[in-house]
Write a protein that binds this DNA or RNA. Sequence first.
DNA 1: ACCTGAACACCGTTCAAGT
DNA 2: ACCTGAACACCGTTCAAGT
Lengths: 245, 245
Amino acid sequence: MQSRNQRPSTSGRAHRLSRETIRDAAQQILRDEGPQNLSMRRLAKEMSSTPMALYHHVRDKGELLMLLLDAHAESFPRPDLPEEPRERLLASAQLLHDILADCPWIVEVLTSDSFVSVSALWIVESLIDSAIRCGLTQEDAVYVYRVIWYYTIGELTVRFRRERALSETKGTPQRERTMAALNAEELPRLAHLGSRWGELAAADNHRRGLEAIVEGLLAQGRGRRPEPAAADPTPPPGRARAVDG
Amino acid sequence: MQSRNQRPSTSGRAHRLSRETIRDAAQQILRDEGPQNLSMRRLAKEMSSTPMALYHHVRDKGELLMLLLDAHAESFPRPDLPEEPRERLLASAQLLHDILADCPWIVEVLTSDSFVSVSALWIVESLIDSAIRCGLTQEDAVYVYRVIWYYTIGELTVRFRRERALSETKGTPQRERTMAALNAEELPRLAHLGSRWGELAAADNHRRGLEAIVEGLLAQGRGRRPEPAAADPTPPPGRARAVDG
DNA sequence: ACCTGAACACCGTTCAAGT
DNA sequence: ACCTGAACACCGTTCAAGT
């Protein structure tokens, strides 16, 4: 509590714009008002500046969000991952998920690229590496990553969207629409879905699905490549190499 | 070619608004200009009307998208699903995916509810039912559905977002940003990801992941509830035939 | 180089009238 | 009941200047 009170707000002077100050202000808005309130205009106002000034430092909103994702990934505590390949694979996937679980804007970042920030690439590497050490080919290992990525992104997308929808209509009886049909007469089995959907859906449940996915994919990999190195009998033109670029 | 040319366009008379005509006009815009061009204003213009007129027939844009999703699901050919539980589970999940694969707006619909249209609920029921007949508890069966749903939604989200990003910047050298780092120096393993990401990623690859997920989840279920009722040899997971379509 | 004011081309949604 | 015009409260981004 030394010299940091209220500086980026209405003081209106002495803070030149830079990627760092822009990023900090954006983080503050994210913290205080949520991701749906982070816009270039709102951000400019927060910094007592104009929208265009921002475009002098970041190419567009997508780059700004990337910046935020990167900073978050970098600041995230970097745990020791287990050595045992399967455990390491699981832990990497879980870490990827946990990092993104704090980033509701990941849903929008996917607009620009379908991929995670550079600061988190080591996790992806670790994940793919572990899969290879579990006995998969490189190609299959990448595939494992992809399936995990889809699962992760899907869970987070659904979660964040629902959270946003709930916060927008604070308890208003508008969450019916399709959900109503679920709790309805002739679909008793599905009522289950509607009622507890996402209630305890967070960390534990994610892990459980992760384990199943990894289990299934590793088994698949073992099935396709039953010998350490015989003659690699996979010549059918199915999905060969296609190096291209 | 009888009486259908140009009717909903600039003729400007004789077609009262209704949920049906609104839906049809929306489908046309979707077909001709893509989902990013479907807005209430654009739609009103297409119908030579005003935005507010639409709000007399649909509550908001979310409901309109739901309408579209529902119509699509209803018109989708309803195949015979296999009887054998595991195959039926897989086929249900694949069908869910295939239906949604034609609906780029699913990504936006998730804003409103995290769930699929009523016209497709029978698929969800079939899926959960199959999982139960595979020996899972109802709770675990619902969990299977959920994991599959996340995987499906994740894949489609990533796919549609990427497609949109590519079509917006038609070949412009803007797809770098994070992707650039992938093909870069010190990450040779990840170059794999960048280059072929999503190229053949469509149907076949989805099915493969689905099989792995189901395999893993069923094994998990068996582990927790070790009484298999002695009537389920589960033929080796050699991914059968892949009837495709 | 860094920033501003004004504009462009949009959004979803609501209000207050019109018929 | 059904529809309109105008407005509210926003977007991301660009243009043409300013210093």
